[in-house]
Design a binder for these strands. Structure first.
Lengths: 197, 197
DNA sequence: CCCGGATATGTGGAAAACCACAATACCGGC
DNA sequence: GCCGGTATTGTGGTTTTCCACATATCCGGG
């Protein structure tokens, strides 16, 4: 993986350096961005990883960057840093999926724990994102069959429900498996469960 | 379902009444408890539903009640109310799974939205809890086979990996299906994916 | 000792999954 | 018109799933 594990977005370079020093001491690779716009324009948002966002930044604040990541369905895990946080903002960011919301001065142990949580979540989100993308390649019919396979119905039962021949169900099922990268119905069921229609 | 949808735990009866009035206006059944200890001792914690907890209470505060619910793996969704909240507490409660953390005086629309979110999550958590309980009835061997089924391996491949006969794998798989309430391998795979080893 | 649960295995057979090869029809894009 | 995708269906055959019936061993609890 050529991308670094951690992105650090903070207009204050001294805070940025302190955090980078701490994280690099733990073996993480860190890329520093002084503005959210630069980060969004320059980073690979489709990769798994973690981004530490400072809440208050001049041109684009941390909540706006976080919102942009969500809009683009980026799997990057988010940790918010702030010198002056208020409860509604903290709660909202957590509800939007931030792994943590830390106040400055930052406690090193907490920051590392938050980053680890964000990275773990990001790995899982990355996998689910891949699966979700594959799911978009399925036709409506194939999706319906995949759903019923997930629910444990036999081809015959599915055929009766959809008023088609068993062979037709087999064809749709095979196509769904191929597109999702599954090698058996059981695997398709598990993958579909993961995507969660 | 004999249990009410919503539990309201607040030592201040006037706030309690206001919230109850609002919620009952939306058709929710509400049970009021003036203390966390009463709620924990008297409510059915294994049911799906929502509990609105006031943060500051004399004998047992809202965070302690929430912690008790988590320790007992209750599927009840949690909404925290507080007159004086601080950022670290808010963030911690959200990390512990609270659906929302609202400051008093409570905005009715927000409260209803929070309750709806908590209820939806609770339903799903209830289902997963049932599955997790069933999973505890599986032997180690059965669990291992279920995991490999979830990964899409054939009985033959599993047998080779475990150095046993195919027939043995079938027996374990059948037992796992029976205990999990699945009627096919595909269904077992999906259910196991949901429990997530 | 008996019983239940866990683990292991064999035999024989039905049901289900999986699919190559083949065909038809419709739609949209080049 | 040709091509690719979607939807539908048939034939014939192999592989896999599922399981009744049966057997054996070990362990713990009543």
């Amino acid at each position: 993986m050529p991308e670094p594990d951690i992105h650090l977005v903070d207009d204050d370079a001294s805070t940025g350096d302190a955090c980078r020093f701490l994280l690099e001491g733990y073996g993480y690779g860190v890329t520093y961005w002084s503005a959210g716009t630069d980060f969004l324009a320059g980073a690979t948002l489709e990769a798994a990883g973690c981004v530490i966002l400072d809440l208050r930044m001049p041109r684009m604040d941390g909540t706006a960057v976080h919102a942009a990541l969500r809009e683009r369905r980026s799997p990057l895990g988010v940790v918010i840093l702030t010198a002056h946080g208020d409860v509604p903002t903290a709660v909202e960011q957590m509800k939007q999926g931030a792994a943590d919301f830390l106040q400055k001065p930052v406690n090193g142990t907490r920051l590392i724990a938050a980053v680890d949580t964000a990275l773990a979540r990001s790995r899982s989100a990355w996998e689910v994102r891949i699966l979700a993308q594959r799911a978009t390649t399925l036709s409506e019919r194939e999706r319906h069959v995949a759903r019923l396979v997930r629910d444990g119905l036999t081809n015959r039962a599915i055929a009766e429900r959809l008023h088609v021949a068993v062979r037709t169900v087999e064809v749709h099922r095979a196509a769904a498996m191929r597109k999702m990268g599954a090698h058996s119905s059981a695997e398709l069921a598990a993958l579909w469960q993961r995507v969660a229609d």
